[in-house]
Simulated scan of single mutants.
Amino acid sequence: MAKTQTENKTVATTADVQAFINAVEPEWKRDDAKIVATMMERLSGHKPKMWGPSMIGFGQYHYVYDSGREGDMMRTGFSPRKTALTLYCIGGFKNKEKLLAKLGKHSLGKSCLYVKRLSDIDINILEEIIAKDLEYMAKKYPG
């Protein structure tokens, strides 16, 4: 099947990450966003970039699906959404379930981890989840 490059809805932008974080309300959510941004930058080794209007991503990778569709996406990232801090860091790494069981109050989506507040979880376990997900992504999408 021929490769297809279709226009993705979520793409990296040149928007100012700090301005976006500084506008997050309420203050506790802004503080949580700053903590997660600092952690993801340190763990990924990449500076933050805005992806779309409300996602902060670190690094990127190129994917190609069996269907031939391909594109680029952030390696890890998050969004301080209204109802929860949405973290894009739930890949297929080993022992994911064991770590999630120790994390604290959270919920899961297809590839998202939802946390209302960082004070609801064990931040060290979150750091381990992000680190393991980045290792998984580096093996699955080298480069």
Rank of each mutant, 00 (worst) to 15 (best):
A15P: 01
A12F: 11
M74H: 11
K49W: 06
G71N: 12
I130S: 05
E97T: 14
N124K: 10
E128Q: 15
A33L: 09
D16K: 04
T4M: 08
K132Q: 15
S107R: 07
A19Y: 01
I35E: 15
M40Y: 07
D120Q: 05
H106S: 03
G59K: 11
S54P: 10
Q5Y: 14
P80D: 05
T6H: 12
K94A: 12
H62Y: 08
D66N: 12
Q18F: 00
V36M: 01
E70F: 09
L108C: 05
S44A: 00
I35K: 13
L43R: 03
M1N: 01
L108D: 04
S119Q: 15
M55E: 07
E97S: 09
F58M: 00
K110R: 04
F20T: 03
K139E: 14
D16N: 15
I90T: 13
Y65T: 05
K140N: 00
P26T: 08
Q18S: 09
K3D: 07
L43Q: 09
S44H: 11
I130P: 08
H106C: 08
L126A: 03
E7L: 05
A138Y: 00
Y65M: 06
R75H: 08
K94Y: 15
Y65K: 01
V36F: 07
K116D: 04
F93W: 04
M73C: 00
E27V: 00
R30F: 00
N8E: 07
N8S: 14
F20W: 13
T86M: 09
N22R: 09
P26K: 12
E25I: 13
I90W: 03
D133N: 10
L118V: 08
C89V: 14
G71F: 06
Y114L: 07
D31M: 02
L134R: 03
K105A: 08
K49V: 05
M1G: 15
G59D: 09
P142L: 10
R30C: 07
C112D: 02
G109S: 12
D120C: 02
E25C: 02
R81E: 11
K82E: 01
Y141Q: 06
D16I: 07
A2W: 03
V24G: 00
N124I: 12
E41I: 04
S107L: 06
Y63D: 01
P80M: 10
D66K: 08
K3E: 09
M39I: 09
M73H: 06
H62W: 04
G71R: 08
N95R: 15
A101R: 12
F58E: 07
R117C: 12
A84I: 04
G104K: 11
A84T: 12
E41Q: 13
G77E: 12
K140V: 04
